[in-house]
Amino acid sequence: MDYIDPHIHMVSRTTDDYATLARMGCVAMSEPAFWAGYDRGSVDGFRDYFRQLTETEPARAAQYGIQHFTWLCINAKEAENVSLSREVIAMIPEFLDKPNVLGIGEIGLNKNTKNEATIFLEHLDLAAKYGQSILIHTPHLEDKYQGTRMILDMLCDDQRLDPDRVLVDHVEEHTISEVLDRGFWGGMTLYPVTKCTPERAVDMIEQTGGERLLANSAGDWGPSKPTAVPDLIFEMRRRSLPESLIRKVVYDNPLEFFSKSKQFNFTPRG
């Protein structure tokens, strides 16, 4: 089955992973900007990173027939450096017209601090001014519930933002309902230990019906599995769930959400 991974950090993966993903049915992916494992020291560091996301990775993906899209931001971990964050936010518009840019992301909170919230709000303002879709990172573990609620508060405070153009990622059992009930899209991240297993994700699909729900691997430089979405497909088939529902979650929903970005120019496999 063709599928789309809506959240995967390919800058951290080898070219062999592109080949494996293509063989598993991956036809498109989107790569949000994230933390590099260290705090970058200058706006030029981010400018180089955004060139990697908008030039290098699409070319690498295309070698395997995969269409690569991306989202730009400075992530929440580095938002504690407010002055650098503001320099990066001011520089992002240089890249918004690049052909694979879908919007602003993955913005959000990490430890739910005032600086993180300040920079999150300034990213929201950027998205609103430039009519961009938004992809959101929610915190991990004990900070997830409070952070997700704070993020939803800030999103709902800004009347310029359309919930239908916002994907709130890393939802789990205690956050999924509020995200979907408020009209946002929800992303389930299949990630060992700190997020969600394919089995639990399928439980959530069964309980919600899969409407406005996406699944991703978040494959990055940490312990993660870039082929986690095929694992989800396998688990859904194991439970005899309809092929139409599987396709909805791993293909149709990402297509529908991405299509709200003016630069999403996707060519289905013929």
Binding site: L141, E142, K144, Y145, Q146, R149, M150, E172, E173, H174
Partner: peptide, 13 residues
Amino acid sequence: AEQLQQLFSREYD
């Protein structure tokens, strides 16, 4: 599962 998640979460303020 949801209750366990809540147990392991900080309260929303």
